[in-house]
Nucleic acid binder design. Structure first.
Lengths: 372, 372
DNA sequence: TGCACTTTGGCAACAGCGTTGCGAAAGTGG
DNA sequence: CCACTTTCGCAACGCTGTTGCCAAAGTGCA
C-alpha cells in the first residue's frame, strides 16, 4: 500500500489507508503475480496462497482485472483429483511503455509491453554536446515513432540518463563533461513535445529497476562501467535513490587514501583507479579495484547479488566477473561467518538493459512496485 | 501497511491487505503522530490533515485508541474563531519496554515508556568472556528487576549486542574477541528466563532505531566508534539490516588498497586505520579516516545526516565531529551540485543511546515502524 | 445582550472492501 | 455409477472509511 500512500501525501509512510487504496494495493499485487508467472500463468488458488487473501477475494479481484482487460484466462491445468484449475494470465498488450537510454554518444529506445517484452527497438547516434535542440529533436524523433506505435495503450516514456539528476522533477544536473545541461528540465521538455507522461531517472537506476522487475529478488547492486562508473541499488525489491536522487554514486567512493587524483577533485576514487587500469590494459587490476568497491558495498548493505554491466564490461565480461568475484570471495572467507559468498554475474539485457529498465519506470507502478 | 504484510506472509511486499490490516495500519499511524506530538498533543483535525484521512475517520480511530487506554484527552487549544479543538495525547504509561545494551565489558539497561521516556536505568559490569551462564545471570538480574517494574504494561525486552548476529532469530555470531558466543541463541535463552518477549539486534541498529523513533527523519547513518566500529543505517525512516542482519559493516570498509593489515584479515580497513590513529593520539587523522568512510557512505546512499556516537567519540567529540564534517564538506564542495553538505552531529542520548534504542525494538512496531 | 458566523466533532446512513457459508461445476478413482 | 476432491462463484455479512447532517462551543460585531 506504500505506493498509494506516497501518492496521497507526498510524505512517505505518513498516509492513511482507505478502501480504494486497499483495493488498488491488492489489484497491483495480483497483477504482479500474474506478470511474474509469465506464459505459464497462475491459478486463482495459487494467487490466494501467495497473497494471503481468501480465494473468494482473489476471484473478485481477477474478475475486475478481466473486465479492465488486464488479465485473461489461458486454458486449464491438469486435474489433481478435482475440478481442474483455470489458468490466468496477464494480457501483455493491455499496456505499453517506451524506454530510452540517453547516453553521451548514443540513443537507444525500446517499446515494451506489460510483460516486459520488447516489441520494437531503435538506435541512433547523438552528441550530448550538440546542444539541447539537436538532442531533444533526436529523442523526439526516435521516441515519437514508438509512442505512436504504442497507440492507446501507451502509458508514457521513461528516460535513463547519466547522472547526477533529480528524478522527482526530471531535471538534469551537471552531467560530467557536459556542464551546459545543468538544470535542464528534460522531463517537462519531452512531455510537452511528445504529449505523453515522461519520467526521468539515472541510467543506473533504470537498469536496476529493470532487473528487479525482471525477476531479481531481494537486494542487489547493479554496477555499470562505461564512460563513468555508477551503481543502481535495489534494497528489498525497490530502487533506492535517496532524497536527492544522489544514491549510487559508486565511482567516487574512495578506496585509496591520498591516491591518484580523480577528475572529480578527490583522490583515490574507484573510478579513477579503475579507468586508469582499463586504459593501460590491466583488466585484472581494474576488476580488483571494482571488487574492493563491491565488497565495501556488499558489506555495508548486506546485499544478495552483484550484477555487472555497462559498455566496458560488456566488451570483456569474463575478467571482470572473475576478478570481482575473487575479491568478494576472499572477503567472505575472512569473515568466516555462515553467509555464503555474494554471487557476481553479468547483468542480462545486452546493451539494452538501461532502455528496458527505463520503460519499467512507467510500468512498475502498475504492479505495486513504487518508484520512490 | 508494510508491517502487517510482513507479519502475515513472511515474504515482504507480497501480502494482501484486508480490513483488519488497514485498521491497524491507520491506528499505528495515528498513534505515531500522537507520540511525535509529545506533551503538546495534537487535535483531531490536525491528525486528519497529516494522515489524509477524513476527520470522521480520525474520530473513530481515536475513540478506539481511547477505549484501549492508549490515548487520552489533554485539555483544549485556544479557539481560532470557532469551537476550540480538543487536544489528544498518548498515554505514556500504557506500555513499557526494557532496553539493554550488552557490551563487551558492561551492561546498561533502561525501562522506557511509550513516549520514549526513561523511567528507570541500571548499569553493571560484565565480562563477555566469563561464560554464558555468568553473563546471562547478570542480564537476567538487571533486566528482571526492570521487567517487574514494568508490570502488566511491559511489552518485552530489547537487547543491543555487538555484531555480527542474526536478528531474526536472535542468535549471536562470532563476536570479535569472543568466539565462544558463536551460535548462541541469546533471544530464546533470555525469553525463557525472563518470561517475556525478547528481541535481539546489533547495538548500532538499536542506536539507529532509537534515533529514528526519537525524531530524526529521512535517511541517516549512525556511526559508533568504541571497541569496534559499526554503523546503523536508517533509510527512509526504517532501519536497514539486510537479509542476514549484516548491513552496517562499516569498520571493514577498505579505504586504503593494500594498506596496513586489519585483524579481520583484510588490509586498509577503516577500523584498523582509525583505531591505530586513536592509539597514537592522532585524533585528527582518525577523524579524517572516519570522514572518508562517511563520505563514501553518504555518496552511496544519499543520506541526510551523519551521527557520531560510541565511547571513543564520547570521550572527545569535538575533533571527531569537526574532522568528519570537514571531509564531507570538501566532498560536497567538489561535487558542486545543488545539495548542501551532509550535516554531522554527535548522537544524542549520552552513553545510553543503545539501550534506549533497544527498547524501541519492542515499542516501534506499535507505531507502524516496522522492525524489518 | 443578541445574533451571525466559524470551527469542532459526533450520529446515522452509506458504499465498498475482503470474509464466510454454501452450493454448483467438473474433474478423478474405485 | 457413485463417492470424493477440487475449483470457484453467488449471497449474506461484518467492518472499514466516507458522506451528509446537525449539535456544541467558541468569536466578533451590532
Amino acid at each position: 500500500m506504500d505506493g498509494v500512500n506516497r501518492t496521497r501525501s507526498g510524505r512517505p509512510g505518513v498516509a492513511g489507508a482507505n478502501l480504494p487504496a486497499m483495493r488498488s494495493h491488492n489489484a497491483a499485487l495480483v497483477l504482479d503475480l500474474l506478470r511474474t508467472a509469465g506464459e505459464g500463468g497462475i491459478s486463482r488458488l495459487e494467487l490466494a496462497e501467495r497473497t494471503g487473501l481468501t480465494p473468494q477475494a482473489v476471484s473478485k479481484i481477477t474478475a475486475r482485472l478481466r473486465e479492465e482487460g488486464l488479465a485473461g484466462e489461458a486454458g486449464r491445468r491438469a486435474s489433481t483429483g478435482g475440478k481442474p484449475a483455470t489458468v490466468l494470465r496477464l494480457v501483455p498488450d493491455a499496456g505499453h511503455a517506451v524506454g530510452i537510454q540517453l547516453d553521451r554518444d548514443e540513443l537507444r529506445a525500446v517499446l515494451v509491453d506489460l510483460d516486459g517484452t520488447v516489441v520494437a527497438a531503435r538506435r541512433a547516434e547523438v552528441d550530448l554536446g550538440a546542444g539541447a535542440e539537436a538532442v531533444l529533436g533526436a529523442v523526439v524523433d526516435v521516441a515519437g515513432e514508438l509512442v505512436e506505435r504504442g497507440g492507446d495503450s501507451l502509458l508514457g516514456v521513461g528516460v535513463g540518463a547519466p547522472g547526477p539528476l533529480d528524478h522527482t522533477h526530471g531535471v538534469l544536473h551537471r552531467v560530467t563533461g557536459f556542464p551546459e545541461w545543468d538544470g535542464f528540465p528534460l522531463r517537462d521538455a519531452l512531455a510537452e513535445r511528445l504529449g505523453v507522461p515522461v519520467v526521468v531517472d539515472k541510467d543506473s537506476n533504470a537498469a536496476a529497476l529493470g532487473l528487479a522487475v525482471g525477476g531479481e529478488g531481494g537486494s542487489f547492486a547493479c554496477l555499470l562501467l562505461g564512460t563513468g562508473l555508477g551503481a543502481g541499488l535495489v534494497i528489498g525489491g525497490t530502487v533506492h535513490r535517496g532524497a536527492r536522487t544522489g544514491a549510487g554514486e559508486f565511482g567516487h567512493q574512495v578506496v585509496q587514501l591520498d591516491g591518484p587524483p580523480c577528475h572529480c577533485g578527490d583522490r583515490g576514487c574507484i573510478e579513477a583507479l579503475c579507468l586508469a587500469a582499463v586504459a593501460r590494459g590491466d583488466l585484472a587490476e581494474a576488476a580488483r579495484v571494482l571488487g574492493v568497491g563491491a565488497a565495501n558495498l556488499a558489506g555495508l548493505l548486506d546485499i544478495d547479488l552483484v550484477l555487472l554491466g555497462g559498455r566496458t564490461i560488456a566488451a570483456a565480461p569474463e575478467p571482470f566477473v572473475r576478478g570481482v568475484a575473487a575479491v568478494l570471495d576472499a572477503h567472505t572467507r575472512r569473515e568466516g561467518s555462515l553467509r555464503t559468498t555474494v554471487p557476481v554475474r553479468l547483468a542480462p539485457g545486452g546493451g539494452q538493459g538501461v532502455a528496458e529498465g527505463a520503460a519499467q519506470l512507467l510500468l512498475a507502478p502498475l504492479f505495486g512496485r513504487a518508484d520512490g
